[in-house]
């Protein structure tokens, strides 16, 4: 029983980190229709900056600075590269983000090399015991902070001008522009926010019991892809639901690996994709996605 609860908590913690990344995908997709492949390297950038800065500045200032810097870089990617391109060519913009990802990732991987960096988080390898279950404090912190941040972002969607503009732009770019929505600004802010979320996700990905920041940490974003798709790409609550589903699935597949050994080793890594395929077969637009109505 404790193992089942353990696995579930693990899955929720993992899911909450996926949710931060997946929410970034969804925000950028809503604002510009682009699938941001650079999210993984933005995450790595945030983690790297925190790791480099925390010894001099202390943990919290380093984290805040890293989050701000990553947001700035993401915003600049939009301003400098994607601005002025025909926004209807989603394919081309999506591939451009792949180019950005390659550039960022190569540079960061060169700097990190084979090292394992620590981010200097205050939780270390402490554990909490809740109702007979022992969990690392970092996992609890991960769930708490994610819930707070995601709640804030959802509130921003509903109650700020930017959120309203974003929702209008994702409904119909042209109509939104005619109503005075400054699409360029909405999009840059969306990119910056997604960058900030990715940088924050880096912290919880590398905290105990994970070993630390490696050059491959950014690949986690590849698992947030199915999370975002699964819930419906244009739906933030869908991204949340998808992330939790993916996180729990992965934890279950890894936790019960010995019982599932007939399906091969390393099943935890592919289980999210299996779940996604099954969901897409039943609902091609994701769990909470809306079917697009087409006018001719």
């Amino acid at each position: 029983m404790t193992t089942a609860l353990d696995i579930l908590l693990n899955g929720l913690a993992l899911g909450s980190v996926y949710a931060l990344v997946a929410l970034g995908f969804v925000i950028i997709f809503k604002a510009s229709g682009v699938m941001n492949f650079a999210q993984g390297s933005l995450l790595l950038l945030g983690g790297y900056l925190t790791a480099v800065l925390h010894e001099e500045l202390g943990f919290l200032p380093a984290l805040l600075l890293a989050v701000a810097a990553t947001a700035l870089v993401a915003g600049l990617v939009d301003r400098v590269l994607l601005r002025g391109m025909d926004p209807r060519h989603h394919h081309i913009l999506t591939i451009m983000t792949i180019g950005v990802d390659i550039l960022l990732l190569t540079e960061l991987a060169r700097r990190i090399g084979g090292d394992l960096l620590t981010l200097g988080d205050p939780w270390g390898n402490d554990v909490l015991t809740l109702a007979g279950v022992t969990v690392p404090t970092s996992r609890v912190a991960s769930i708490t902070v994610s819930v707070l941040v995601i709640g804030t972002v959802f509130a921003a969607f509903r109650h700020t001008d930017w959120g309203l503009s974003l929702r209008a732009a994702s409904e119909d770019q042209e109509a939104a522009a005619l109503m005075g929505v400054r699409l360029g600004r909405v999009r840059t802010l969306a990119w910056a926010l997604a960058g900030a979320l990715a940088a924050l996700a880096a912290l919880f990905l590398t905290a105990f019991p994970a070993p630390g920041l490696e050059r491959t940490t950014g690949q986690i974003a590849l698992k947030a892809f199915p999370a975002a798709i699964l819930g419906g790409m244009a739906s933030p609550p869908g991204a949340l639901l998808g992330s939790l589903l993916i996180g729990v699935t992965e934890a279950l597949a890894a936790g019960y690996q010995s019982e599932l050994s007939a399906l091969g080793r390393g099943l935890g890594d592919v289980a999210p994709y299996l779940v996604m395929i099954v969901v897409l077969l039943v609902r091609p637009h994701g769990l909470l996605g809306t079917k697009e109505a087409v006018r001719v």
């Binding site: 997709f29 699938m35 989603h90 999506t94 590849l222 892809f225 199915p226 975002a228 798709i229 790409m233 091969g264 080793r265 390393g266 099943l267 890594d269 592919v270 994709y273 299996l274 996604m276 395929i277 897409l280 091609p284 637009h285 994701g286």
Partner: peptide, 22 residues
């Protein structure tokens, strides 16, 4: 499945295929 959904759905093939190959 359309658009980005198909793109990410096909992403699954790469990982599942890798799993089978191993």
């Amino acid at each position: 499945v359309r658009g980005v959904y198909l793109g990410v759905a096909t992403l699954a093939l790469v990982f599942l295929g890798h799993h089978v190959m191993l």
